[in-house]
């Protein structure tokens, strides 16, 4: 039986490393706020915002805006769809490594 091509399961949305990193934080945590995410990944506001927007468009994450006192606080959380896509992508990467080793 021919081994299934693991690349079929790789997700285009996660080709970018920052998006994969954002997703891994949101899968490990119930929710995460913008500033903590920025500090953790050490990237700029604009860069983070554009990647978050892309993930939001794919419906992999949801945004929740609240106010702490008068300061706006933006929280992000992974959706079920996002969690599933992330798991599938990681599994595909694992699969690929296994195939490489088998050679």
């Amino acid at each position: 039986m021919a081994a299934k091509n693991p690349f079929e399961n790789l997700d285009k949305a996660f080709e970018n490393r920052v998006r994969l990193q954002i997703m891994s934080v949101l899968v490990a945590n119930e929710r995460y706020d913008f500033n903590s995410l920025k500090e953790l990944l050490s990237i700029t506001d604009g860069n983070l915002a554009s990647h978050l927007k892309a993930l939001e468009k794919d419906e992999y994450i949801v945004v929740n805006k609240t106010f702490v006192g008068r300061k706006p606080n933006t929280n992000y959380a992974a959706t079920e769809k996002g969690k599933k896509a992330f798991k599938q992508h990681i599994d595909a990467l694992d699969q690929f490594l296994k195939l490489q080793r088998g050679k």
Binding site: R17, V25, L40, F96, L97
Partner: peptide, 20 residues
């Protein structure tokens, strides 16, 4: 690259750990 995948997976693992 195989090495790049290894690095990606390692960075994901460390991020999940560090963030939570």
């Amino acid at each position: 690259e195989e090495k790049q995948i290894h690095d990606d997976l390692a960075s994901i693992r460390s991020l999940m750990e560090r963030s939570s």
